[in-house]
Design a protein around this nucleic acid. Sequence first.
RNA 1: GCCCAGGUGGCGGAAUUGGUAGACGCGUUGGUCUCAAACACCAAUGGGAAACCGUGCCGGUUCGAUCCCGGCCCUGGGUACCA
Length: 936
Amino acid sequence: MEYNFSDIEKKWQKAWEEADAYKVSNKSDKPHYYVLDMFPYPSGAGLHVGHPLGYIASDIYSRYKRLKGFNVLHPMGFDSYGLPAEQYAIQTGQHPEKTTFENIDRYISQLKKIGFCYDWNREIRTCDPKYYHWTQWAFIQMFNSYFDAKTQKAQPISQLVAEFEANDPKWATLSEKEKQERLMNYRIAYLADTKVNWCPKLGTVLANDEVSEGLSVRGGYPVEQRVMRQWCLRVSAYAGRLLEGLDRIDWTDSLKETQRNWIGRSEGAEMRFNVKGQDAPFTIFTTRADTVYGVTFMVLAPESEYVARVVTPEQKAEVEAYLSRCKNRTERERIADRKVTGVFTGSYAINPLTQGEIPIYISDYVLAGYGTGAIMAVPAHDSRDYAFAKHFNLPIIPLIEGADVSEESFDAKEGKMINSGFLNGMEVKEAIQAMKEYITNTGIGRVKVNYRLRDAIFSRQRYWGEPFPIYYKDGMPYTLPEECLPLELPEVSDFKPTETGEPPLGHAAKWAWDEANNKVVDKKLIDNKTVFPLELCTMPGFAGSSAYYLRYMDPQNDKALVDKDVNAYWHQVDLYLGGSEHATGHLIYSRFWNKFLYDLGYICEDEPFKKLINQGMIQGRSNFVYRYIGEGATGNLYVSANLIELPQYKDKVQPIHVNVNIVNNDILDITAFRSWMPEFKNAQFVYADGTVDEDNPYIGAPCEKQYMCGWAVEKMSKSMFNVVNPDDVIAKFGADTLRLYEMFLGPLEMSKPWDTNGIDGVHRFLKRLWNMYENISNEEPTKEELRSLHKLIKKITWDIENFSYNTSIPAFMIAQNELSSLKCDKRAVLEQIAVLLAPYAPHIAEEAWHRCGNETFVIDAAWPECNEAYLVEDTQKYPVQFNGKVRFTLECAKDMPKEEVEKLVLAHEDTAKYLAGNAVKKVIVVPGKIVNIVMG
RNA sequence: GCCCAGGUGGCGGAAUUGGUAGACGCGUUGGUCUCAAACACCAAUGGGAAACCGUGCCGGUUCGAUCCCGGCCCUGGGUACCA
């Protein structure tokens, strides 16, 4: 009987769907378990074979947990707001919703073919008003909250207002607008003039994690710095808790480390320096308080507010020239060109310890956004200060004994202090401590912890995103009442910015808020008395993805993001699978968002994702043909890859990408190649055996000679012609083969190239397995058969619990091989094999399960328990080694105690003496392992 | 520069981490079946004629090291004037 995977897979996918077999209930006596994939952005290119890797891994775990008796929540949805659909809309005029929905449909149909156990009843889309209702709702909560530094948690802003009313007599005298302005400094979602990453090409601002090396991550367009009034989220307030929470979650060390670096905690001190001839001091931040005696100049960031105060009239022109030069440089230029630049302000600061006068400079190597935007420069012990001092000929005073600072600075925090007053003779670490105490006691400064983590810019000047539930009255923002949500995204006549430079929502005709009647009305009615303008920006991509895992728990609820009882049942995501590229974006924002909702008591867990696994990237494997470009080249001759190192071809061939789908095991399908593109129509070849076509063999019998392609691992992309579509693999081999093969490729967490060579081996295994279910007997299994089965149970259970899926497939193959050679056809064995296989290859397992006479779905079976008794062999062979060399084998009872084995070995002492010519010094017996005899 | 992960046959990778290195699969070679090919099945396959040598390189601990320690080299990823 043939293994007809196509019929089997269609049959069971239909049956599961009709029975709603994967529907999950929020009420159950079973223990709960929540397995989540990072939901995809539905791109126009559809899924390639790399995307489902993590989904297959999580599906295996979900099915396993369910077989183990858990109520498993395993949902899927779509992160459906995003730039590509909007860029496409600008180019074609097509509404982004249309493209997005088409892409989602395609994704769903591709995903369904793979046979996942998602509960599609719970599907969510971030662009669905029923969903973004709760994104907007969360924003309102953030607007109406502040972060209380004392309790380190979010509190309702009304509490702060009450505090102002009680303790600050000035509060009552403020106007409504002044009050709002003051509160804006505390709100967790707040409006502020901040320096932002502006991308002119995309016409929007971008968050720090959306920019890399001065270019936008999406599209790679240049990004410049600009000051704009933007919505921001006070993520930095949570820096301490985001850092400390990492200790309580089960994530990989490398991911935690990435987050720790991104949060960037540094312990140091703030110190005040007086300016000569002025009353007002300025404050700097340093982690090296011990080096105050070596400060030979001060540096301010160009954007520092101190600049205006310290510039002298004589220096004004020069400083202004420098500032405008800084301003016009893009971030990219600044990174590319790291020359030392700077300008003297004309003023001097007073060193609080030595009372010496030190010049104040401005330079762009000091960042306005970190610390106080001002530093004390210690050239002897900081490489950046050193470079600056050398350039401007400023003095360099060494502070550590034995440090040679004639060529470079000495940055290490070790050694004995010199030239440092009362610190002399101390170790650096002691000196830092002593100086911190000194400045605290004398009031010069204070101990301070700084974080690198900055607030998230939350406005995007784009159309395809969540509208802010905000309108403006007297220039200040007010939130819509919660019961008016969702505020739906309006239709616009054009997706580009308006002529006046407003975001695309400026084109919306019906986009104003009637405060009295609580409804959206025509823009023309704006009178700023009862009808007010609505916010024109939309929210960024991470808004919708920051709390989606909560919504899956209760996706239909229109009263709350998630019902409290439902949340109390599921708690949090137990296992989260996704790529490590989200380490500093989504995974920070989600944790922040979750902590905020936790503070306000809406959810019961402080961390969203208990355990997190990063699946590796699937890279592409490209194939090449080699066009001959040497002497006499016609541009039409291609050299086989095994020959290109020969002297006549070396450096005379040019590799050209060839579509991997017309290459099989690196052998080119010549007919397909010639019809692939017009330029290859008359291609001629130097074949693997070195023979050359004299005539064009295109017409006539198919050529038996082989042309070998070269290959390389590259990113999977259309331009490299190395994209493999899962639909094609499924059509050829079936979903079960695809699932098994993806897992077989290598360890889940490692990056690896997709190489279709080898998929036959996995497919063959399924065919062989299939044959075992043809005639099933009811006889009792033999001891050997049971041993094979229980060995497999033990192995597969261990593998799944340790996410070592790649080693399960060999175990299945070995078991299949053993059982076939035993001619095993026993129902008791085959039935359990089907259950073990069900997480990996659900369709074939389902069919096998039914062939064993079962009526239920295999997913409702129970995971088999390993009975260790079957694994015990009667005898055990101990290879005996002398000084590490195997000399003979001992055979004894498996359960023989260690001492007995030792005695037995010693009984062979004569043999040992004979072989080694020495006395036995030591016998090492490890049960089940090798016996070692050490000779004296 | 700094942080993290990783280097094992022709290839992907095993070795549940101190106990017979190379499981399993691909590829290759030989064979069976076939008029023939494909499919399938069987056998061999780290190097070396052998003694032996082999897990990036050098050294160390150990009876014994892919695994532990010290130093270096290479590859991939993250990050970058964070004071």
